[in-house]
Design a protein around this nucleic acid. Sequence first.
DNA 1: ATTTGACTTCAAGCGCGCTTGAAGTTCTAC
DNA 2: GTAGAACTTCAAGCGCGCTTGAAGTCAAAT
Lengths: 126, 126
Amino acid sequence: MTITDAGMSISDMAAETGLTTSTLRYYEQEGLLLAQPERASSSHRRYPPQMVNWLTFITRLRSTGMPIRDIRRYAELARQGDATTPQRLALLVEHRSRVLEQLAEVQRSLEAIDFKIATYERFETK
Amino acid sequence: MTITDAGMSISDMAAETGLTTSTLRYYEQEGLLLAQPERASSSHRRYPPQMVNWLTFITRLRSTGMPIRDIRRYAELARQGDATTPQRLALLVEHRSRVLEQLAEVQRSLEAIDFKIATYERFETK
DNA sequence: ATTTGACTTCAAGCGCGCTTGAAGTTCTAC
DNA sequence: GTAGAACTTCAAGCGCGCTTGAAGTCAAAT
């Protein structure tokens, strides 16, 4: 936080979200933000503190495997306001079901791996 | 399966494992197989049927996010025989713990997404 | 005899999600 | 006022895991 200008610097935001400054610029370029950050001194980005929440949320979408292009679509809808709530809901519900499928597959694979581990352990103690 | 030669063709193997023929050649090139498949007619690959099991297993490793290079390492150990069982066990146990961590993070993110979905649904029925 | 199609090798290409580098500007501390 | 850190844009590069394309061989069917 600076005193001269309202809002957070890019490194403040990076520290807050766990993203790198490069990633923040990249996300902005890819249209993932709800609004362009303002500029202090006519060049340095100033993020509104509430943007932390948005970035945190899209980090959740990313960490569950949602591609950038889908997040962009979601952000576009969000920028259009409340009227697009149904579409956004649909996107999230669809995403959730894909995540649940993936999760189930990982768990099945994990069982196979556990089985193999058990085999090795039996071998060890023989 | 052909009659003229023992073993499965690459397309047999692809059908059996769900991998593409290209991926099978790629895995071979990357050193992921326990042994080079024999050749029929001095050029076409002939896979021993038991290689289905190995390929199925490494597909499980892949689907839980193990990188090719780690699978190669695992395959190298496996080729060296029973003496390397402890190392292989260690690799798998380590992998399992990474998978469990990832799984936990995905589940946390999913909760956040579920929360958002609930918010939207509340909005809808308001 | 020729066509079809499954195979071969080898190298290059691709999609994704960032990351890095260059070259320049601006802020902060001394 | 000057050094050094932090920022800016823009383009290129990278790591990963395949996929695709070109050019050729070989076997079986017509």
